[in-house]
């Protein structure tokens, strides 16, 4: 619910911003895109170890393939990405602004907020205009199975795309790129047998998005 509210507010804000200035001579550009992001994961290891009982000794190099511990295979992951950007047009080749959205990685969602630049490639603005985008910022942990244990982290994401201009300052976008996002899970532990557990996460994804700009 929080996510939905957040997104709605973002969109309303952008729409309001877009309407404040006449479209023909607008100094602002807003893009809204949606798509998928794809990546791979390594195989998972047992979640725990059988340290209780007197003569079972834990050996981290031994693969305890007990039925109660999930050992997930390596595989492909695909998740939803929603992305919005609002920026000031310094020149058609350089639009500076901020971006935000929602990204789903495996079973955890993140809300990235980043400083972003966009701009047209090859100098001229035509009906079919290639553009670049580059952003770096912080991802806030969103809905996830670990709740407050999961902390967000730094992200950066470059990409390229094509804008099909409609002629009145609006356009249709197709873009692709890369996303690197870091996060950390500080797990709750029993404090007796397991004293601390931290998972450093680095998500690497390729994304494909479609949307529109105004």
């Amino acid at each position: 619910m929080k996510t939905v509210t957040f997104l709605t507010l973002c969109l309303v804000g952008q729409a309001a911003m877009g309407q404040n200035t006449p479209t023909a001579t607008s100094h602002w550009r807003t893009t809204v895109e949606m798509g998928v992001q794809m990546g791979q994961v390594k195989p998972d290891v047992p979640a725990g170890y059988p340290y209780y009982g007197y003569d079972i000794i834990y050996n981290p190099y031994y693969n305890y393939n007990y039925s109660y511990y999930p050992v997930r295979d390596a595989g492909n992951r695909i998740g939803l990405t929603i992305h919005a950007f609002t920026g000031y047009i310094v020149s058609p080749q350089l639009i500076t602004g901020i971006s935000f959205g929602v990204d789903y990685f495996n079973n955890s969602a993140f809300l990235p907020i980043a400083a972003a630049i966009q701009g047209d490639l090859f100098g001229r603005t035509k009906r079919l205009t290639p553009f670049y985008t580059l952003e770096s910022g912080y991802a806030i942990a969103g809905p996830n199975p670990h709740g407050k244990e999961l902390k967000g982290g730094w992200l950066w994401s470059p990409g390229v795309g094509v804008r099909i201009n409609k002629g009145n300052g609006t356009g249709f976008l197709i873009s692709a790129g890369y996303k690197h996002l870091e996060a950390k899970q500080v797990a709750t532990v029993d404090g007796v047998q397991i004293l601390a557990q931290t998972e450093q996460r680095v998500y690497n994804r390729l994304y494909f998005r479609m949307g529109f700009s105004f």
Binding site: I194, E199, N204
Partner: peptide, 11 residues
């Protein structure tokens, strides 16, 4: 495009 995750456990 592979995730890199490392779990460090003190036990």
């Amino acid at each position: 495009c592979t995730d890199n995750c490392e779990r460090t456990t003190t036990y």
